[in-house]
Simulated scan of single mutants.
Amino acid sequence: MPSTPAAPSGPPPGRWNVHRLPRAEGKTFLVTGGNAGIGYFVAEQLAGTGATVVLGCRDAAKAGAAIAAIGSRVPGAAVRYVPLDLADPSSLKASVEALGLDRLDAVVHNAGVALDHPPRRETRDGHELMFATNHLGHFALTHHLAPLLAAAPGSRVVTTGSFAAKSERLDLDDLQSRHDYRPKRAYARSKLAQMLFALELDRRLRAVGSTTRSVLVHPGGALDSLTPSRPPVHVRTPGARLGHLPLRLVVQGKDAAAWPAVRGVLDPDVRGGRMLAPRAFGLRGVPRTEPLWSHLADTATAARLWSASRDLTGTDPGPGRFAAAP
């Protein structure tokens, strides 16, 4: 009697089920800022696939709390921590060496800083804090990770943008917001820089036939009050949940906001240079491929941003790095 074929481990081609993720045993994923917020839920969901997940973050105690929370939800989860300070590019090479890996299947560029009020703050290198952390740090980190990603066929660089960037444009003559600092605008522009980087990286990788894919995602609208509790990482009170329940028609919790990045890592049908976003107006719902916003297709601005980022960081995560042997 012929044997019965094994049931598929993931959704049929062309379909994606956020509640039935494909298995990923033997793979390793790095999530920057994986100890809190959306990054925590990206890490938790990836851990549920059987993959090894590394949380890249600054605070060891917060990382430990996140690892414990994931372990309580995902029995046998393989999760660990590596110190990572994106505002200090000189430390990133050591952080990558501390991974102790000879290959990396995906990195999720998720960590970010959002300041609401002046004054303008700088890193010790003299860079505006949000631009330095959200964009320059991930740009430099990709440079150091490139050989590990190149060693894993079909690896992914998944970059998390923001809906806030949709109405912004870069000022290439004032990337550091030195002349007219407005915190919310500076944050939105830092996320726009990330998004342009993701698309420019894809163009450069495809030009040399690299198997690494650069995938852009944005999480839509996410509120703590709609996010399920994960003590001690996040605790939601019943009052907060009920008070904001009507907003669920428009936005979502951070668990659902993690879905685009998780799909960007795991879905074999996802192509580089595309943007995954929530289905309902880009704000909530299951992730789907969304047309690029018109200003994201500005290749001249993206190329100039790349050159400026290379000069500011002293790194270049171009295709030559991805061709290097680990």
Score class of each variant (00 low, 15 high):
W259D: 13
L175D: 00
P326Q: 05
A98E: 02
F139V: 08
V158G: 00
A152E: 06
R73H: 10
F281Y: 11
L205S: 00
R204E: 09
M275A: 11
A207Q: 10
L55I: 15
P89A: 10
A152V: 08
Y81H: 15
L266Y: 00
G39H: 02
G253S: 04
A66Q: 12
T142L: 01
S294N: 14
D85G: 14
D298N: 13
L292V: 13
V235Q: 12
A186R: 08
A106C: 07
S167W: 07
L92R: 00
C57A: 15
D116S: 15
G37P: 09
D171Q: 11
D202W: 01
D180E: 08
A324R: 13
S167F: 03
D224S: 10
L216A: 03
A66N: 14
A77C: 10
W16S: 03
T159Q: 05
L145N: 02
R103V: 07
M130Y: 12
R204L: 04
L149T: 02
A24T: 01
L216S: 06
P246S: 07
T142Y: 05
A78W: 04
G10K: 07
V265P: 01
D105P: 01
P228A: 08
L245R: 13
L226K: 09
L292M: 13
A280P: 02
A188P: 03
L99A: 06
V42K: 09
Y40A: 03
L129C: 12
T49G: 02
T133L: 00
T4E: 15
A297G: 15
V113E: 01
L305T: 01
G37N: 03
P232Q: 03
W16R: 04
G243R: 11
A300N: 14
V235C: 11
A106D: 01
A188N: 10
L216Y: 03
R288S: 10
A111L: 00
D116E: 13
